[in-house]
Amino acid sequence: MFSLNIFLPAFISFVLTVILCPIFIPILHKMKFGQFVREEGPESHLKKVGTPTMGGIVMLAVFTLVGIVCATHKTELFPVILLTVGFGFIGFLDDYIKLAMKRSLGLMAWQKLGLQIIVTVVFAYMILSNYPDLAKIIVPFTGGSVVWNLGILFVPFVFVTVLGTVNGANFTDGLDGLATTVTLIIAMFFAVLSIKAGSNVSDTAMIMIGTLLGFLIFNTYPAKVFMGDTGSLALGGFVAAEAFMLKIPLFIIIIAFIYLAEILSVMIQVSYFKLTHGKRIFKMSPIHHHFELSGFEETRVVAMFAVITVIMCFIGFIAL
């Protein structure tokens, strides 16, 4: 039987997010930190211009505050906090430059990648120095009986997994409530698994659940605030870190299938466009825009992707 203390971090982070968002949103309005919409994006998104962005600051602040309090007696939480906050800070820089310069492009690609590599290096070093056993990862659909000891390959594996997950989360943040809802379901998967395994990272999963539930109140269609790169990059960092701390980074392909689909759709679209000198496979990428332009309402796309994530998380449990 679960102790009520397990749910306390979720409750506290939910309450803090619900309190802070109504305070922070008017400040963003006053500072004219409104969303820029790409000219080549769907026409239906033009109405989103001016909607406050950088709401991820609230998410990041709540997650960090509650996380640090919980981590005072549970050091396993620090790698999760590090990767979440580290990527959230990169997203903050990106968002701030966009808003300060009044343009749709923030950090240059090489700047963003360079910062992401630095954060990932610190995360990999922290794991190898303090939790070397995490280099042994569980292989899906083996009942936990097959474990890969990556050894020297662990570091490059961390880079591919973390950067792929973070950028997948970033591409997923394109519709009202989409990244929030998808990641909320993934966080619930982590919470159930970590509680069952008796892992302390259940606290960070619970904190993220509470934070996302609170933020979803203001981020669901029609959104009153967007999370921006501050939020989406932080979410990707959280998912990657939580998976590594539970020895299940290979499961990200399953439970975060939407992240994978989003980033693959962009890669396929760009590659095909270049190879065929202008032809496209999708009406628009990332793939959620393809569904929009195919006649699906924005809310239906979000619901559909959420249902897919629930199904994939069930498959994730079967794969354990």
Rank of each mutant, 00 (worst) to 15 (best):
K224V: 05
M59Q: 07
G164M: 06
P249L: 03
M284W: 05
E40I: 11
H45K: 11
N170Y: 09
R280G: 00
W110Y: 09
G86Q: 13
I117N: 11
F171H: 12
E43M: 02
S129R: 05
F317A: 06
Y96C: 01
L4I: 09
L105H: 06
L212D: 10
G143P: 08
T181R: 06
H277S: 09
L93R: 01
L128R: 11
A241F: 12
D95V: 10
A319L: 04
W148D: 00
F87N: 12
G114K: 07
L65E: 09
I315P: 03
I25Q: 00
M108K: 08
V310E: 04
I263C: 03
T64K: 09
R103N: 01
K136I: 07
G278F: 12
L105S: 06
A319E: 06
L46Y: 10
F305R: 14
L46V: 12
M126S: 13
V69H: 10
I315L: 15
F226K: 04
F226M: 10
L213T: 13
K283Q: 08
A240N: 03
G164W: 00
M206Q: 09
V266D: 12
T299V: 10
T75M: 15
V62Y: 15
G91S: 03
K74H: 09
F251M: 09
F238C: 07
G151R: 04
V162C: 11
N167Y: 07
A100D: 15
G278T: 09
Y259S: 05
G67W: 08
A261W: 14
S13P: 13
K196A: 13
